[in-house]
Nucleic acid binder design. Sequence first.
DNA 1: TTGTCAATATGAAACGTTTCATCACGCTGC
DNA 2: GCAGCGTGATGAAACGTTTCATATTGACAA
Lengths: 333, 333
Amino acid sequence: MNPTIKDVAQRAGVSVGTVSRVLAKNKTVNEDIRLKVEATIEAIGYRPNILGRSLRLAKTDIIGLVVPDITNPFFAELAKHVEMLASAEGHSVLLANTHDDPEAEKQQIETLLGRLPAGLILVPVSNSLVDTLVTRTRTVTVDRPLSGHALVAVDNRHGGYLAADHLLSLGHRRLGYISGPSTTEVSGERREGFLSRLAAFSETHSGEHVAPQVLEGHFDYRSGEELGKKMLMQPAGTRPTAIATASDQQAIGLLRAAGDMGLRVPHDLSIVGFDDIPLASLVQPRLTTIRQPIDEMARLALKGVLGSHRLEEEYKLQPVLIERGSCAHPANA
Amino acid sequence: MNPTIKDVAQRAGVSVGTVSRVLAKNKTVNEDIRLKVEATIEAIGYRPNILGRSLRLAKTDIIGLVVPDITNPFFAELAKHVEMLASAEGHSVLLANTHDDPEAEKQQIETLLGRLPAGLILVPVSNSLVDTLVTRTRTVTVDRPLSGHALVAVDNRHGGYLAADHLLSLGHRRLGYISGPSTTEVSGERREGFLSRLAAFSETHSGEHVAPQVLEGHFDYRSGEELGKKMLMQPAGTRPTAIATASDQQAIGLLRAAGDMGLRVPHDLSIVGFDDIPLASLVQPRLTTIRQPIDEMARLALKGVLGSHRLEEEYKLQPVLIERGSCAHPANA
DNA sequence: TTGTCAATATGAAACGTTTCATCACGCTGC
DNA sequence: GCAGCGTGATGAAACGTTTCATATTGACAA
């Protein structure tokens, strides 16, 4: 029904091979002929059939994007940027959710691989089964590492460090930290960075030993709320005056918990999140947080997947502290 | 490199046609042969090449999902459900964002169509250019209509009606409504539903004429905040005691605005949103809202795209009022 | 004139399916 | 013994590309 390369060839009076060569911008084609072919392409509105090409090349121009849950604002943001950049280069993005389930992830990636994608951008689950599976395709991992594959991520240690530093500089000494699941490296790194800054502080300020309360949960809203409630349910004298979290979602849950308990942020409690999702600047009060440069991560991941040479093993981007309204000096200071 | 249907045929000592027939579960194949073929398939780990099949059939099993912005929680939720259901049936989902730009939408859909998808699930932009373009594929429209195509949406009029009804029954008489852009039908319907309930009330309660203040903006957080500020910046005597919005995002923005101005929700101001995005139950206070059954919408849309017979022209689902913490009786009552 | 070479066009094969017209075979009924 | 038939397998064509070995042409040198 649609015109094929044969129709073009016939109408232009050349062979299909020649048409293919002008399509491929191959240099070895006579100027006159090139013009004539291009004219006929225009005239009959020929559009190359992607399936024919893909079959021949045994490879499509589709990019697989595999995330735990597209509903998570961080991954939605990632997806948006990946899709924008990819479509600007004529690639399409196939979306798959793993729901943090290694089996589902394996299943999803297997069917994805069957489609012979140009590459895979993957946010792997914790105990991923796919490390050897994906070696068949160019794969770049985002946010979380997967052994043997390029990783684009933020320097999580530094992010945690920044959060701690900010709270210390505001004068907070009784600190809390709401961590992500210890099964993920990301979460461990952020916590480590946070604790390391505190340890350094204790060392330089002898006598002022700051030992934070740490609680561990998931990255989601609910976990932030529950853990926050637990942590805040202490007398004002021992309760932390500031809490850092491993994600903005946790921070927003924590904000809720604080509100429910009659604590005012930032007057009674300072909070610093992590990620800088769009919502962070819309909650009440606006969330001070550690921004991940998602657009840059998307760009790098795509470059790693489509670019001419392999990405280095690890690409760590620098997070930056975004000061908004959820932090202040401690009330008793 | 991967085994092909030829390898299977050769190894099983049959023709490729026969293998294809057992793959297609065609009945006209001898039991013994079927078993042998299945065994060899298993033995050499044959997986049909999707590209070969697609080329032959001139059709893929990919479903195109085109939304304005995957970052919008409502569309993210939709995408999640569509993807889950689709992958359960062996289909994959190609994601495209239009950023509410008719040109971008056209561009996206054109390249999508070039991939010969099994169907298209589309949330069209306001002045969509693609109504004739997409007739080439089975298309179901979600949330917003597009002339000549099946639509799956919530009964927006009824949703607006429910919001108004709830606020009236709580005793509110000075009402505000923050609408979406009048360029979208969705927004008009919700507003109409809201106003119609108020009109009916005025009629039955002669003397109590309720005429709401209406402000119009976009569906996003920012619009809710700005318009909210404007509406609340009135003396307590004339300022609405309750405001309904056309989206949860607006409602959350409004919540912010109220907070910034020192108004307490729901004591000083009642708010009811629309959509019931995940965040609605996590803001402070939890948002009373009109829920859209997104999972059901995704199911219907997919059925319309993959099912054996066309969906009816319009499929209107019933929204339901979810009572949470952002509404109360007016303070002066 | 012939041979060589560069430049460029051609034709056919190949990618992995599905489908359809054809064919082989065994049975039945006469 | 054979025509007719039903059951099922076969082989080849077709889908729309790309690529590569080969063919054609013209120019130029010997």
